[in-house]
Design a protein around this nucleic acid. Sequence first.
DNA 1: CCGGATCCCCAGGGATACTG
DNA 2: CAGTATCCCTGGGGATCCGG
Lengths: 221, 221
Amino acid sequence: MRSYGHFCSVARALDVVGDRWTLLIVRELLLQGPCRFTDLKDGLPGVASNLLSERLKELEDSGLVSRDAAQPPVATNLYGLTATGRALEPVIQALGLWGVQFSMEKRTDDAFRGQWLTYPVAWFLQDSRPDEPAMTVQIIADDEPVTLHVGGGHIHTERGTVPDPAVTLRGEPDKVLGFLAGFIDLKKARAAGVEVDGPARLLTRITPKAQHSMLQALTLD
Amino acid sequence: MRSYGHFCSVARALDVVGDRWTLLIVRELLLQGPCRFTDLKDGLPGVASNLLSERLKELEDSGLVSRDAAQPPVATNLYGLTATGRALEPVIQALGLWGVQFSMEKRTDDAFRGQWLTYPVAWFLQDSRPDEPAMTVQIIADDEPVTLHVGGGHIHTERGTVPDPAVTLRGEPDKVLGFLAGFIDLKKARAAGVEVDGPARLLTRITPKAQHSMLQALTLD
DNA sequence: CCGGATCCCCAGGGATACTG
DNA sequence: CAGTATCCCTGGGGATCCGG
């Protein structure tokens, strides 16, 4: 990217990561960990392959991304973040927190990937009944399966399915997230097409963290 | 800006502030407070006036910036941040902290403005001898005058000169900042063209905050 | 099928000139 | 002073193609 030419650390940071797609590539590498070109491309719907290739080269030159040959059986490269790249997590988080206020606007054609549910859950939600036995919640949003491990006060997420979840949620991503975060109640969620398999009351132990009161001011129509 | 089309709050945030110059405009409005078009343009060396005009319009539409007519005598508009815009400060700060590692690279033709010194001072430096009487330090970097008010454990900065400072520092911005932050000692600073008027030992009460140890690993050649 | 490279087209950015 | 208008050109988007 063309340098802003300012002696200012904010401008210098943007000289490195200010290009289109760059911070979203870092987001995907943070969420997915070291992964292949194709995995990155799938996690960045809409990116042109030449752009992704070019950005990865620039990020490698800047020392934010490492490129390693995978184990011999598979002939592919694995892209991962260096320590410098991982140090961008506070930037991604600050952007993500600020961006929540725009996340509930209805946009019918937005793409969705399961791993994108990870951050809002980690940032905003908690297990409010840590003494109850751990449970797993299966979420299927836009056919993207995500598993929530709830217990001990925390919620851990991962992609994929799990054999016998305590509860299963299916629906559109914004509705599922809105329900989990408490923007809409069970009745409205069901009206919006969210299906709940299993005892819905188990889900009441998932609550927003208090410090993000901004979230609770949001409404979902 | 063209939307990324991702149902992800990071992407939604970048849909709003991901355009070139946008976050630097927010930086200037945070640093300068409500100000005129010309003040913004001066604080953003290199920006084309049509770009600045266009961005301000977009920021106004997004609800980040307010445009108010100034007091009758002067016929001009004042641009300021709304609460939504000010909420970007954590993003700017995270970027600025991450960008420090690139800030000491020598770039001879970088522009400099006094207000850009405000953030590094506020983020990294402290008054390590709060019990001593307050003092003012005058900095003249690239002909941009900045005043440091040091006392009570804190350092407050403002643009402009002050009548009788305890110490005056003159030199190139990176050298002055490097000296203040402790990357280079007085001898090296003088060798690099920094002039100190007044008792230099008074400056030893300005020290880096402990939590930003990253800073101290940096070296300035 | 994976990991890109190449090509073409167009929107957006940069520089400059101009106007109320 | 505070923008607007214009032109040019780079850089991004999209599709396709190619070597392994």
